[in-house]
Amino acid sequence: MEILTLVFIQRALIAAVLAGVTSPAIGSYIVQRRLSLLGDGLGHVAIAGVGLALATGTAPLPIAVITAILGAIVIELLRESGKASADVAMAILFYGGLATGVLLAGLVGQGTGNLGNYLFGSLLTVSPSDLWLILTLAILVLAASIGLMPQLFAVCTDEAFAKVLGLRVRRYNLLIVILAAITVTVSMRTVGLLMVSALMVVPVATANNLLVGFRKSFTLALGLGVVAAVGGVIGSYYFNAAPGSLIVVITIIGFIISVPLGNWLRSRRAAPVIDSVDPEPLPHEATQPHQSHIHGPGCGHLALTHGDHTDYVHDGHRHAPHGDHYDEH
């Protein structure tokens, strides 16, 4: 692994790890709240900040952070207003941000070439001062999204209930979009502003397929995010591709694998439940003899908890173990 001795790769890898943990961390809340495309919109808004920085010759990262946070506040206020026109206003904001960024970068002759580093990620653009800012912001995002997990979870799953608990729901909602805005800029060097949303959403969806429970799948999503981000950065060095594209492809491959794997794991859990035991017992009806198959936990058939026992779904029937044979249920 001689690439690891290259200083710019070391910096890119550290940035990738930070992007890989922060994006799914905030993404877990965004997905639970069914705002999966929020990160995409914030990415577009941040492009305006990058364009402004390129045009004025200042450092892009701080300006992008400020632009994205301002955009996040506007988005949340629009969403909260609940007006039908809010939808259109958000679209205008997103594409206005993208267009402004491209225009500003073009005006000073930077063209989309330089801007492309920020749109699709780049191995070469992480400066040491950037890295410190990214590290600070990433710690902030992680501390909030882990430390405030119960509160953020409650607000994202059931806003009305959270309000009746006395939680300051407005503040938490605002916090979520601001954290998402910061995450977008943390990940901008690694995945790029146009694809950052994928790193927020796809590892979360993959983890949701595989595990049960918010905390467990949150943890797995962070791990998957790091694997994809680091894998993408290393791969892009060899393939000479933009790291963002490779990272997103890796996350999606992971998701595709998780679909059949998740179905298999679900069938191993005795998950679905029929909690009725009819007052009148079912008429006894033995099944056709099973061909040397013994049902049990993890036998590959969908298991249903049926009152005080377990049924196994088998060729369109529900078979319940009864002594030395199975009954139709």
Binding site: N208, V212, F214
Partner: peptide, 27 residues
């Protein structure tokens, strides 16, 4: 105060029963 909203209004994609009940402690 314990509020029990209409079940149809509560969409929880990923949580265990224990996690859902734990959020009641947040008050």
């Amino acid at each position: 105060v314990g509020y029990v909203p209409q079940r149809g209004a509560v969409v929880i994609k990923q949580a265990t029963v224990g996690e859902v009940v734990a959020s009641g402690r947040l008050a």
